[in-house]
Amino acid sequence: MFAGGGEAALIRRYFQGLTSQREGIVNGIGDDSAVVEPPAEGCLAVCCDTLVEGVHFPADIPAEALGHRALAVNLSDIAAVGGEPLWAVLSLTLPADDSHWLEGFADGFKLLADRYGVALIGGDTTRGSLAVTVTVIGRLPKGGGILRSGAQPGDGIWVTGTLGDAALGLKRWHDRAGVPLSGDPALLAAQLFRPEPRVAAGRALRGVASAAIDISDGIAVDLSRLLEESGVGATLILDDLPRSEAYIAEGGDLATMLHGGDDYELCFCSPPLSAEMVEQLSQQAGTSLTRIGTVDATPGLRGVDGAGNVCALQSDGYDHFSS
């Protein structure tokens, strides 16, 4: 139980009416179930992610950043299939009803939800070790979304944004020894705590991408999952992997880019694109698009370095159940 009026009072104070409302909500927070009207046409996309303290985020993450991150990782999944997010459900496990922490968490969640027009329509709260589960429901045009299974030999492989920033930011956060981060390390940590979901990019890629996946566990393992679903292989040009200026300045290496995870960028495949089409898509996506390789018929993932040497790339990345 929670003090100060208990669970019901906590929900009313911090979450009921938190986000802007939108069409389709018959009844939201306050009943046993939220009730929504599905879109008249098209499909629904549903995703769910759980974040656990010490596994998905450090114990000293700012509360506002956790509120942002908990929603952002789900919006990234909706983006990967080309969807438009509509509604969210939040389940929050708390060690205590800390009003200052809850206000920060709610603020971070609300700011991102309102930016993307996502309405919080229900959820649950309970006492225990800190963990956050968010479910997001979105909509897709008739015919469905962009799947992992459509890549074909000859397709280009592309990524949005840059790679490795969040993983290196986590290292810098752990190494800071209580000193506030500034400069490039702070920029890298911001990519970890407040990832930017590529919702606009996903919608721009409808009808363009043959396959897509969001990069949560590292480009090597996530691209390998896409290739396996499509029954193809690929070769990456390692020197073409996009690096931020902060990443370069902080000495980020290739291994962190390939295997670090937490990028929440989109990796997608497509038939050849003209320079004009790439520029148009980049403007619609609001971020850079970089071609990093080519799909081929030979199973597996390979990399080519600047000297032309070809090597097999291990599909390593974050895995909860790896040994």
Rank of each mutant, 00 (worst) to 15 (best):
E229K: 15
L226W: 03
L86H: 09
A131L: 03
V134D: 01
A151Y: 01
P141N: 08
I248K: 11
E84H: 03
R203S: 09
P185W: 07
P38L: 04
Q284E: 15
G67V: 01
S282T: 14
A40I: 09
L120I: 00
L223G: 09
H68D: 11
D175H: 08
A166I: 12
G154Y: 02
L18W: 00
D184L: 12
I61D: 07
G154D: 05
T133D: 02
G6A: 03
P85M: 09
E265C: 10
G24Y: 01
L266D: 05
R12Y: 01
E228Q: 13
R13T: 15
G117Y: 02
I121L: 07
R139A: 15
G128A: 04
I11R: 13
V52G: 04
L313S: 04
D155E: 08
G28A: 13
D240P: 02
C48K: 14
D97S: 10
A200W: 03
G317P: 08
F193V: 10
N309S: 11
S20H: 03
D155T: 08
W158H: 07
V199Y: 00
S76Y: 00
I157G: 06
R302M: 09
E23C: 06
F268Q: 11
A131W: 01
C47T: 15
G293Q: 04
G128K: 06
L75C: 08
I213L: 12
E279K: 14
T287E: 10
L90A: 01
G143C: 08
R302N: 06
D239Y: 01
S149H: 07
T287A: 10
A8S: 10
D217V: 09
E279M: 10
A63V: 13
P272H: 05
S282K: 11
L111C: 09
D316N: 06
S230K: 05
E276I: 04
G233W: 01
V132Y: 00
G233L: 03
L289C: 12
S270P: 10
A79F: 00
G143T: 05
S270C: 12
R203C: 07
L187T: 15
V35L: 15
S149R: 11
M1I: 04
L111W: 01
G54P: 10
A167M: 12
G30M: 06
F15V: 01
G154C: 04
F268P: 13
G233A: 04
P95I: 12
C47Y: 00
S149I: 01
P272V: 08
R13H: 12
A45M: 07
G154V: 06
K110D: 02
S270R: 07
C43A: 13
D184W: 13
P38M: 06
T125K: 00
E41P: 08
E84K: 07
P153E: 09
G54Q: 03
R203Q: 15
G161M: 04
Q280V: 08
L90T: 00
A201F: 03
C43N: 14
A255D: 15
S323N: 06
E276R: 11
S224M: 11
G308V: 08
A209M: 09
E279T: 14
D296Q: 11
A189Y: 14
D316F: 05
A166K: 10
V304P: 04
Y116T: 06
E276G: 05
Y247K: 07
D77M: 06
D305Y: 01
L236V: 12
T298C: 01
A212Q: 10
S282H: 09
I78W: 00
A285E: 08
E64N: 11
